[in-house]
Each structure stands twice: as structure tokens, then as C-alpha cells.
């Protein structure tokens, strides 16, 4: 009897251990930040789940002709956006209608996409996968490919306990990876944490003061966005005719409202705005000081003109450059998982 009890307990301990090994919650909320909006109880982060999501993020297997991955338009070195293209291009060289947004700090996101058409991080990947200008594929077809691949059944087993590849698991693992992409160690963050030996220059300090005076209402610290939508006075592009959030809500008051982007790593996330119309930060500042198109749907925060001297504009940009987080841009835990794909090639 005692022998059997011992065996049962030992087996239970092994099962328990392997379960514990898989369930490693390592999401850390940076000091002084608000609570995340993402409900981690419904998708507990695990090392294996994050790794699976990372593999999927970098794998072109999710596009119709296996050439385009999520990372094609969201490159780590440029804050996970498509550098140097005003409008991002996808499959077969097709050009979309918007500039791919930066990806970071997604645990605090509410509505996604420039127009807020997507209501939850988990279901975000469905949009680019199905978009004919991006990946031109479907969730269903992606899952069929993953089930046939040499790599994924074992990655799903490691992440979820068995080799069943479902839409839910697929989407949740992508979320797991995207949730880990946190940028919270820029020089701005270090100054705010009063880290030893890190200080703003006088110019940067003045830039922060001006930022808080003119920009903070929409680009709220520490995330540098409220997560809301605004009409920032950009005239509509007559070719693209993109009216932003109005397409989703059907409300005229939402005309030309686009998601307020975070300004973190803005130094590397050019070109700027939903259609990438500005290549340089100077152009952005010029827009806010002298280019705003007034209309009944202009966001109220911008109704009063922003007046900045030439020096103040420089100071503002100096501050914005302190939001660069080099550790984030080069963090190898977010990068292409070469070791996984190399293993697959060898096999």
C-alpha cells in the first residue's frame, strides 16, 4: 500500500513540476506604470508559449506564398515598424494604405490598428493575415500549414501540453510574445527612476517642460499615449481617402481620427503619421505649430495654436530622442529565433 502511495505521489510531483515549468509568469510591470489592460488570467505567459509566439511572429509561413511574416512590417531595430516606407508593403509587392504602427507595451493597449478596428490583442493577427495587401491568407489555412510542418507540432506541445494546433492557441501564443515586447528603459525612464548618474541636459529638460505643456494630454506618460483617437489636423490624402476611425464607428465626429501612437523609440520609427507622410521629426513639429488644418472634427486639444520658438522646437526634439531604448531595439529575446529555424533546416 505504502509503495503504491509513494509511486502515486512521485508521479503527481513529476506532473506538477512539468506543469509548473510550463507556467512561468514573468511579465513585470515597470515601476510607476499603470496596471496592464491585458487580462493575463486568460492567457498566462509561459516561456514555451512566448517562444512559440516568437517563432510564429518571424515565420513567413503565415502568408499565402510564404514570403511575408509579421516581422516583415514590424522590424525590431526600428521599434517594430516598417522603416523607410510611408505605406507598408506586403505580399507580391502590394502596397497597403497605411504605415505599419510600432509594436511595444501592448499589454496596455485597448483598441488596435490606426482606426481601432481590432478590439483585443489576441485577435489582432487575424487582420494582417487576411488582408490581401499584407499576407493574403487565412487563419484556417495557416493552421493547416502549421499542423503539417516539422517544427510546430512539437512547439505547440511544449507550450500547451499536446500537439493540437487550434486558432485559440495560435493567437494566444502570438499575444504572449507580443506582450513581452516592453520598452521601459530609455534615458527618460532612467531619469524618472532617478538612476544614479543619469540626468537630462538643460535642453532636454526644457523639451520635457514644453512636451508636458503642449503634448501630454494625448501622449500621456509613461506610455506616451492615452490609447485614444484624435484628429490632429492632417488634411486628408486625396488619393488614399482614409478617414480613419469613422470607417469603424460610422460617426462623422470620428472623421480623420486615428489612434494616438506612443512616442517611445520615435527616433527610429520614421516615417511618421498613419500614412507616413513625414520623414523627419522636424516636419512633425512644424505640422503641430503651423500645419494644423482646422475643422469641426479637429480634436479639442489642438484648437489653441501651439507656439514654439526655433530653439524650443530643437529642445522638444532633444527630449523626444531621450525616449530611445537601445536595450529594447537590440534585445535578443525579441529577435529572429535563428536557433529554432536552423534546427528545422537541419532536421
Amino acid at each position: 500500500m505504502k509503495k503504491w502511495l509513494f509511486i502515486i505521489l512521485l508521479t503527481g510531483a513529476f506532473v506538477g513540476l512539468s506543469f509548473t515549468n510550463r507556467k512561468v509568469a514573468f511579465f513585470r510591470v515597470p515601476e510607476g506604470w499603470p496596471a496592464p489592460t491585458y487580462n493575463f488570467n486568460n492567457n498566462k505567459l509561459t516561456r514555451e508559449g512566448v517562444l512559440l509566439g516568437r517563432a510564429l511572429f518571424y515565420d513567413p509561413i503565415l502568408s499565402a506564398d510564404s514570403t511575408i511574416s509579421c516581422a516583415s512590417c514590424h522590424l525590431q531595430y526600428t521599434a517594430f515598424t516598417h522603416v523607410d516606407h510611408n505605406l507598408s508593403h506586403g505580399i507580391y509587392g502590394r502596397i497597403g494604405t497605411r504605415n505599419s504602427p510600432v509594436l511595444s507595451n501592448l499589454a496596455w493597449s485597448r483598441l488596435l490598428m490606426w482606426d481601432g478596428a481590432v478590439n483585443h490583442l489576441d485577435v489582432q493577427p487575424l487582420a494582417p493575415i487576411a488582408n490581401k495587401d499584407e499576407m493574403d491568407f487565412s487563419l484556417d489555412s495557416s493552421l493547416i500549414r502549421l499542423r503539417r510542418s516539422a517544427l510546430y507540432p512539437s512547439l505547440f506541445r511544449q507550450a500547451f501540453g499536446d500537439t493540437s494546433i487550434t486558432g485559440e492557441r495560435f493567437l494566444k501564443s502570438l499575444s504572449m510574445f507580443m506582450l513581452t515586447i516592453v520598452s521601459s528603459n530609455s534615458r527618460y525612464d532612467q531619469v524618472m527612476r532617478h538612476e544614479k548618474g543619469v540626468e537630462f541636459s538643460q535642453q532636454e529638460q526644457n523639451g520635457l517642460r514644453l512636451f508636458r505643456q503642449h503634448c501630454e494630454s494625448c501622449h500621456k506618460e509613461p506610455l506616451f499615449t492615452t490609447g485614444g483617437f484624435a484628429n490632429n489636423g492632417l488634411p486628408v490624402d486625396t488619393l488614399l481617402r482614409d478617414h480613419g476611425r469613422m470607417r469603424v464607428t460610422g460617426k462623422r465626429s470620428d472623421s480623420l481620427h486615428f489612434k494616438i501612437p506612443s512616442l517611445r523609440n520615435i527616433e527610429f520609427s520614421f516615417p511618421y503619421m498613419h500614412d507616413g507622410r513625414f520623414d523627419r521629426l522636424q516636419q512633425v513639429i512644424e505640422h503641430y505649430t503651423s500645419g494644423i488644418r482646422n475643422s469641426v472634427v479637429l480634436s479639442p486639444e489642438l484648437r489653441e495654436p501651439i507656439v514654439l520658438s526655433a530653439n524650443e522646437k530643437v529642445d522638444m526634439i532633444a527630449f523626444l530622442l531621450t525616449l530611445t531604448d537601445k536595450g529594447f531595439l537590440y534585445d535578443t529575446s525579441f529577435s529572429y529565433p535563428r536557433f529554432l529555424f536552423m534546427r528545422q533546416t537541419k532536421e
Partner: peptide, 10 residues
């Protein structure tokens, strides 16, 4: 977000 069973987006 992502749900399973009959609610799986797949």
C-alpha cells in the same frame, strides 16, 4: 480575445 471550441476564430 481568442476563445476556443465553437468560438475559435478558426
Amino acid at each position: 480575445g481568442a476563445l476556443g471550441g465553437d468560438l475559435d476564430p478558426a
